[in-house]
Design a protein around this nucleic acid. Structure first.
Lengths: 198, 198
DNA sequence: GTTAGCATGTAAGGAGTTACATGATTTT
DNA sequence: AAAATCATGTAACTCCTTACATGCTAAC
């Protein structure tokens, strides 16, 4: 299935890969993972979980018997299935142009520890290339529009340019480090999924 | 009407405020204005123009008679109406929390030259405050999650933190400059709209 | 004369948001 | 006993994108 995989799905898979969790907690972890800016809402998360359940990538864990015995409503804890683990691995193996677009890059980088070293490198270089293209476009536009534009617009463009240049330098450092000492991807999740069959 | 005004609409109004333009050109100017990253597509722009026409903020200029005489299809050139000019002024007068959110801030800043000095200052300070909150959240999360997180995630967060700190310094410089020498908003468009009644 | 770029659009859909609705549990 | 925050969801909507469709015009 060519299901267009959004940032959210990857992030959820990645977090559940570490350990099972319920929706509310997932959302909090998601927001620190994605940087506080991308504030995921429940209106996005729960439908997403629903879809992933149907796809068979995650499953509800058996409710805690201690809690159920007390007549309390147990939290719905989700865990990765074997299929979900496979699916996540496939996603982490991808290194096409989409992986270094603004939105995707963040999530992909966040799970680099589990990503193959060669894929890591390709994504870092891809992103750097993308940003360098952007710099070229910027600078070309700057010489074209010079004088026709007020100081504020100019200042905004200058700041934007510097931000991108800074990110390029950051990427270069990372690439150099990767090349000097390529670390293998960490192989196993902290928890096996064998107990939760599809 | 509480019509939720998107980035696109503000940007179009602002550009047409400088001079009338047709859609294709507008899109190019839009993309350099918004920074090459936010690549507006025709599928967004033309429906947006359509809506703005209906709202009465813009109007089609009379086609160039020289071109029409040759039997060629004239370009559709849009210009601000008096209503559109008013509407744009109202938008530029807004300085609420929405104005310093990531998406809006860029456009608002781009048109600072036409924005009232006091409003400018409030937006800059509002944004800085917003980013500082974000820094606090970041750092709190960092101390909470320390050690529970791998090096890549850590590195991503570190870089994000530094980027935000950098933007805060930038804003502080701008605010200081504004306070030292507050410049009045430039008052008139380069072209009056009196010739294009609603 | 064909490729590249100019110019205008529409239809379908994606990835999320806001606002709403509900109720349990913990803290003050 | 009130307020906060934990916890789970749904419905409607927004803003924008992709992919498509069409044709003109300049450059090589």
């Amino acid at each position: 299935m060519g299901k267009r995989t959004g940032v959210l799905e990857v992030a959820v898979l990645g977090l559940l890969h570490e350990s099972p969790m319920h929706g509310y907690e997932l959302r909090k972890r998601l927001n620190t993972l994605l940087g506080t800016f991308r504030a995921i809402s429940y209106g996005s998360l729960y439908p997403c979980l629903k879809g992933m359940l149907q796809a068979g990538w995650i499953a509800e864990e058996a409710p805690d018997p201690d809690v159920s015995a007390l007549g309390k409503r147990a939290k719905i804890v989700y865990a990765l299935t074997a299929d979900g683990k496979d699916h996540f691995s496939e996603l982490l193996a991808a290194s096409g142009p989409e992986e270094w677009e603004d939105d995707n890059f963040g999530v992909r980088f966040a799970f680099f520890a589990r990503t193959d070293a060669a894929v890591r490198l390709r994504i870092l270089e891809g992103r750097r290339g993308r940003l360098e293209e952007r710099l070229d476009g910027f600078r070309a536009a700057a010489t074209r529009t010079r004088e026709r534009v007020d100081n504020y617009t100019l200042e905004l463009q200058r700041h934007g340019l510097e931000s991108v240049e800074r990110e390029v330098r950051w990427l270069t450092e990372l690439i150099d480090t990767e090349r000097a000492a390529p670390r293998p991807a960490i192989p196993t999740p902290t928890r096996t999924t064998s107990e939760i069959p599809k």
